[in-house]
Design a binder for these strands. Structure first.
Lengths: 220, 220, 220, 220
DNA sequence: TATGAATGAGAATTCATTCAT
DNA sequence: TATGAATGAATTCTCATTCAT
């Protein structure tokens, strides 16, 4: 290096800047992807470190163990969906439109966050073991159930919706209609020999789901 | 041992009778349980052998590898549910009763065969990799879709059901309504802080599902 | 099978005719190939059985163990080369021609029986363990050494060859000149980046070997 | 442990100092010995770890797999012999002496490094599979061939050596003369019923090899 | 805060060999 | 003579985790 000269004299790979938050975030991102793709059993700590671009030891430094990391991933995933759910404005629109929005939101969120589906599957495989350890599950109860209860009540009072609909049941049903289709798209596509993830198929599915729920709810 | 003689000719572990079919069946039973409880990644071949009461080597002798064993388990699980589905007599009863039976069957099958749900989850986590290798997926297409199509048509012609219902969509919906509730009961129970698997809750769920589907289908 | 009818009514895979010699021969053939290709450590009894088209158990029935099978293979390989060596007529031709024949024979035998080279390598890796157990090694001493001694003597008396040549040394040298080239052709080809097994290369090698040995032997 | 106190702070196996180079070197040493003695198929990773005094896992940490370790061993073996070959000063002495030195060097190197012979045998058994994967084979071409070419040329111009000798052929011949004797000493000793590795026998062999080559090369 | 080196416990898979017929 | 079923003991390789700096 005769004439030009580097600012920093070390030609060695620059040590990563010490930024705790950033490292933790990258670890969580990497872990989310890894767990979502491979499940808890199939995920590898080595690979998570590699994906995050951090030293494996750092994962233990911040999260303690693979299991605890999984819990942290789960918690963040729940926090995120709850955050978006809270942003849904169902009380400001008329009941039928509110239901439409709820269904569309659920569908789109699962569509855009497939990792959420597989993380939930993993957690259920483990009988919600990690969730139960989590301090903040209580606060994680979906705000949608409250909103939905209010919409159902409003719609009923307006004579539009049928009476006696349990908001929890309906919430679970809407989730299930989307969840099963999207979460099992691989096996369903194989069994039905048709691509359930094609754009047209997805449009039709959302339409069917909406018809189904509104066909049930709306009085004539 | 010149003089003394053993009374009982050693109570050593009786050599298992040489029955290939029986051994294979027991391996499949054990593997089904193990994979259902722990997923493909979490399952242990050692444990499967132990559960089956066979030598671990025998698993490789018959099935080649853990992955191939998983495939065999999946295939048998599909064959079984298809077998039971074929036994459903939907064409012999009037449309509304037929739909009730279909929903109840789906619900009860998932309830009694929770392993089917987790196996499907695992397979979807692996993007239906094993199913795609399976020669007989084609013939595994659910007979229910055909039956359902016929019932929908019959109900429509009788002026009972609405027109234009895609049987595949409805089939997926019915499955999803049951699947999500049962397959995610652990996380849902944790999040809603109520036991979804209590007898009363299960009765209510089946009732809700039936109301939802028939509320949608039946014209007034 | 409406009209034509099999002699034997069993459509099952015909049980192999019980022919002890044939079975043993096929096992030896298969084992020779397997050991030659993969060495003693790399050879698999399962694969030998498959190659021979016999049940694995039969190998143990006839040969006792993998090691004993290897010994049997080795013995047969030695018997065969000794048999061919005996057929060499060196005493009937004039000394120079006799040497040419010996070199050509050695070269061609190794060329046509590459398995002999690798079997020898394996046996040397194992410090001739199996050979030492073999009863008939004594009688396996190459007849070529005797013949060569006679030729050297005859050539010397005729004033053609130099004196004091140890026939064992020369025999080993001739073997080595061929053996190293053929037995190490893969690494040599890789290192020299030229194909030592091309026809032209082989012709040149035989020519060089002959020149070398006769250049040394023949007095001027 | 309230009152008593250990004198020596536990004589437990001292944790090995963290020295990556040293660990890798020891693994390579141990692996070289193991592969040389037992071949690729017969070598055991466990035993290599034990011989090296390292944790078995470390072998995988550094070398990835048994095959890759074998490749590393081979590469180092080639590097070493090439290094010594380069140190041979053949161009500084008169042609006949240069040839003597080359033969003696080859003989002595094989004699002192029997592992090189068996490693080569193993690699040839595997059709140079590992060598071909090695990036640096090209640069591994023996410098001896160049040197030999120069000596042959020099000897010919001085009227001492015969014309038209291919240096590659002669190099291979010299190697083969030593290689076959030393590499097959166990079977040859068994077959000839005489100890080829006795000191006297070895002296005679080197003498014979030199006579043979010079007898061929030197014009009269 | 960050990292390369090191490890014990296990995991899937293999293999020679024996059993029972 | 012949064979499918079965097995114990390895064997290669993996993995979460810890050490030392």
């Amino acid at each position: 290096m005769p004439t030009t000269r580097k600012r920093t004299p070390t030609p060695a790979p620059e040590p990563r800047p010490r930024d705790a938050d950033r490292s933790q975030g990258e670890i969580l991102d990497a872990a989310t992807a890894e767990f979502a793709e491979l499940g808890l059993g199939g995920a590898r700590v080595d690979r998570i470190a590699e994906r995050a671009g951090v030293n494996k030891r750092l994962i233990y430094y911040y999260f303690g163990s693979k299991e605890d990391l999984f819990r942290a991933v789960l918690e963040r995933a729940y926090e995120r969906i709850r955050g978006e759910e809270r942003a849904l404005s169902m009380s400001e629109v008329e009941p039928i439109e509110a239901i439409r929005r709820l269904i569309a939101f659920t569908w789109n969120y699962y569509l855009e966050h497939p990792e959420f589906l597989t993380l939930l599957n993993s957690e259920n495989l483990h009988r919600a073991r990690h969730l139960k350890k989590s301090a903040n599950i209580a606060s994680m109860n979906s705000p949608l159930v409250q909103m939905l209860a209010e919409v159902l009540e409003r719609g009923h009072r307006a004579g539009i919706f049928r009476a006696g609909v349990d908001p929890v049941q309906l919430y679970v049903s809407i989730a299930g209609l989307a969840y099963f289709y999207l979460g099992n798209s691989h096996t369903l596509s194989a069994v039905f020999a048709r691509d359930l993830m094609a754009t047209k198929a997805k449009v039709e599915r959302l339409s069917h789901m909406t018809d189904l729920v509104l066909g049930y709810l709306v009085r004539d």
